[in-house]
């Protein structure tokens, strides 16, 4: 096989997600009353970017064949924390941002430490730590409120040069600063290897524990970036249980749409980003077609159900029935 065919096989999921997103977004803008204008793109990207960050966080953990059901709660916790800290003069704001991101990193690191060194199942662990994070968020913000440095918020949610949405630029920056270095590093390869076949990776001397730990910790960091942006969009902090759960759920949907294998070892955060943007656009399609907003949860649920069921097509390629039982 030629090099480009290897590359194509590796990126198939990402390209498919990109294609779905382009199709959906074209349908969306062509039916939008305002059409394809800078304003429409800005609103869409601001909404999509939030989910994109949380989906990137979920991707990192899913790649190691784990799952993080606390991403939505870390997202809420950092949102509530940011509504206290990211305010005041330039230095105070900068300190606040660092503190919020540090908190996210710490939450992710706690998850990772319990799962890897405590040897508990990721699913039970992250449900339990999610309850703890939600409790802390509720402690910080028993009622919605707080405020944020509005200059910074407006700068990051507005448009650069009047055309490009600043949130998309921030997303790109995070991809370049966090995802690219991680996925190319030894730790990133170890995370992939651990998800693909933990035993084989261990036998080959790959540092799987450190790789998995880094993946969980960075997932917390990415969720915190999402929480920070949520504060920039809403100017407030709110500990809403339903919203945290919804983000966790949608992050899984975005990851699946983005071509990341839930069995681990396959996919990329870029795919998950397009999956998240596509998922958001699909949800918004209902509005441009004038459906009752009441139908939105059902519509999103059905999309999720279809997306996860698509994975079943792999069954047709199974020659030996014993491969059903992994």
């Amino acid at each position: 096989m030629k090099d480009w065919r290897y590359w194509l096989a590796e990126q198939r999921g990402t390209l498919l997600a990109f294609g779905i997103f382009i199709v959906m977004f074209t349908i969306y803008t062509s039916n939008h009353p305002a059409g394809f204008t800078a304003n429409v793109v800005q609103t869409a990207s601001n909404k999509g970017v939030l989910l994109a960050f949380v989906a990137m966080a979920q991707t990192l953990v899913v790649i190691t064949a784990g799952i993080d059901l606390s991403v939505g709660m870390i997202f809420l916790l950092t949102n509530c924390l940011a509504s206290w800290l990211v305010i005041g003069t330039g230095i105070e704001t900068a300190f606040g941002v660092v503190a919020v991101l540090g908190t996210g990193l710490l939450c992710g690191a706690i998850n990772g430490a319990i799962v890897i060194y405590g040897r508990l199942q990721p699913i039970v662990t992250t449900i339990a730590t999610g309850a703890v994070y939600f409790g802390i968020a509720l402690l910080l913000r028993p009622f919605p409120g707080g405020s944020v440095n509005e200059d910074l918020a407006d700068a990051l949610t507005g448009r650069l040069f009047g055309v490009v949405p600043a949130s998309l630029v921030a997303l790109l920056a995070v991809v370049l600063v966090v995802w690219m270095p991680f996925s190319r590093s030894v730790l990133g390869r170890a995370a992939y290897a651990a998800g693909s076949s933990e035993m084989a990776a261990y036998m080959s001397g790959v540092p799987i524990r450190r790789g998995k730990f880094a993946a969980y910790a960075l997932a917390g960091l990415l969720a915190a970036i999402g929480g920070l942006f949520l504060t920039f969009f809403t100017y407030t902090g709110e500990a809403a249980y339903a919203s945290g759960n919804a983000y966790t759920l949608f992050s899984i949907a975005a990851v699946v749409l983005g071509g990341v294998s839930l069995f681990g070892g396959k996919g990329s955060a870029i795919g998950a980003i397009f999956g998240a943007l596509a998922f958001r656009t699909i949800g918004d399609l209902l509005f441009v077609f004038d459906f009752d907003p009441l139908w939105q949860p059902l519509f999103q649920g059905v999309i999720l159900l279809i997306a996860v069921s698509l994975g079943a097509f792999a069954l047709f390629r199974v020659r030996n029935r014993l491969e059903w039982f992994l």
Binding site: G118, R119, L120, T129, G130, A131, V132, G135, I136, L138
Partner: peptide, 26 residues
């Protein structure tokens, strides 16, 4: 309050699982 309940709840579950619910060392 609800917040404290959620926190204690999660901590107790993780703590008890760490006591006897751990997977065998690989």
């Amino acid at each position: 309050p609800e917040a404290g309940r959620q926190i204690i709840y999660g901590v107790v579950i993780v703590a008890m699982l760490l006591l006897y619910g751990r997977a065998p060392a690989s």
